[in-house]
Computed example of a mutant assay.
Amino acid sequence: MLDLVIQTRVHDLGGGFEVGRVLPYRQRRMVGPFIFFDRMGPHTLPAPIPRHTDVRPHPHIGLSTVTYLFDGQMTHRDSLGIEQAILPGALNWMTAGSGISHSERFDGMRQNGGHIDGIQAWVAVPEAHEEDDPAFDHYAADRLPTFSEDGVSGRVIAGSAYGVDSPAKVHSPLFYLDVALEPEARIALPASHAERAAYVASGTIEFDGRQYQKGQMLVFAPGGTPTLKALAASRLMLLGGEPLGPRHIWWNFVSSRKERIEQAKADWQAGRIALPSHDNAEFIPLPDTVA
C-alpha cells in the first residue's frame, strides 16, 4: 500500500548549484534511517567549472553521508586527512560521529567541464553510535555486488536485499539499491524491512494502476510486497530499513538530542571542529537560519 508520494523541491546549495531535495519532507522526515535525500543533477557544467560551484568545507555530527554518482566526478576531502575521488557506481560512506568536516569539489572535472548527476543521502545512526569517532570508507564500483534477472539489473550499494549483502559498514538494518528496469520489467520491494521507498531517477513506473515519473519518491506502508512495473526504461533508487526513532536536524547536524545540536553550532562557530588540513583556506560559516 502506498503511504505517500513526495515531489522533489529545488534547493540551491550556493554558487548556483541546485539540487532536488526529497527528504526531509514536512509529512515524512525519515524512511528507515534515511533522513536526507538530494538529487545532484543532472547538470551540465561548462568549462572551466568555477570554484564557487564547489561545496566548501562544512561540518556534520550524528549521521553518515552517503554519496553515489550516476555520472561525473567529485573530490571528497575531510578533517581525517582523507582525499578521495568519487566516480560513478562507487560509494563514499562518511560517518560523522562526534564531529567531522569535509568538502565536495569538482577538481577532476574543473578543466573540461561535463555532466554531473548522483544522489547524496544521509543515514541517521542509533543513539549508541552518535558520538562514535568519525570515520570514512570508500567502496569502488566493482566491490559492490550486482544482480540481474528478467529485465532488472541492480547494484546493492549498502545493506541487504534479495539475498545479496553489500560490504559497506552500516550501523542499523537497511537497504539501498540502484536498479535499472527494461520496459515492462517488474520489481517487488524487499519484504524484510519495515520502512521502504522508491525514488524514480529516470523513466516512468506504474504502481497500483497509477503512473509515477522522474523526481517522485513513493513511500510505502509497512507490510506486503509492493511491485513496481516499468512503462519505459527506468532507473530507481530503492531505500529503507528499520526506524531509529525521532531525530532532530538543523543544517548539517543530526542528533536525538536538541542540546547536542546546539553544542555543534557553538563548536563550529568557535572553530572546535577541525577543517580538512588540505582544504582549509575557506569554509561555510554557521548560517543564521536554515530554510
Rank of each mutant, 00 (worst) to 15 (best):
K169H: 15
V170Q: 02
H171P: 02
P173F: 07
L174V: 07
L174E: 03
F175M: 10
Y176G: 01
D178Y: 06
D178P: 05
D178G: 06
A180Q: 14
A180G: 09
L181I: 07
L181M: 13
E182K: 09
P183K: 05
P183L: 07
E184L: 13
A185I: 07
R186Y: 03
I187M: 04
I187Q: 04
A188T: 12
A188E: 12
A188P: 08
L189Q: 00
L189M: 11
L189Y: 02
P190I: 08
P190R: 06
A191F: 11
A191K: 10
A191T: 15
S192H: 13
S192Q: 13
H193C: 08
A194Q: 15
E195T: 08
E195L: 09
A198F: 04
Y199F: 15
Y199I: 04
V200K: 01
V200S: 01
A201V: 15
G203K: 01
G203A: 08
G203Q: 04
T204L: 14
T204M: 13
I205T: 00
E206G: 05
E206S: 12
F207A: 02
D208W: 10
D208T: 10
G209K: 08
Q211K: 13
Q211E: 15
Q211Y: 11
Q211T: 14
Y212S: 02
Q213K: 14
Q216P: 03
Q216K: 04
M217K: 05
L218N: 01
V219Q: 02
V219G: 00
A221R: 14
A221S: 14
P222E: 06
P222Q: 08
G224M: 07
T227V: 12
T227Q: 13
A230H: 02
A232F: 08
A233I: 05
S234F: 06
R235C: 07
R235T: 10
M237T: 11
L238R: 02
L238M: 11
L239V: 08
L239M: 14
G240H: 05
G241S: 07
E242W: 06
P243F: 07
G245Q: 08
P246S: 10
R247I: 07
H248D: 09
I249W: 03
W250P: 03
W250H: 05
W251C: 02
N252T: 15
V254E: 00
V254D: 00
S255Q: 06
S256T: 11
S256R: 06
R257Q: 14
R257V: 09
R260Y: 03
R260W: 09
E262Q: 13
A264Y: 02
K265N: 03
K265M: 11
A266L: 14
D267Y: 05
D267P: 03
W268E: 01
Q269E: 15
A270D: 14
A270N: 14
G271Y: 10
G271A: 10
G271K: 07
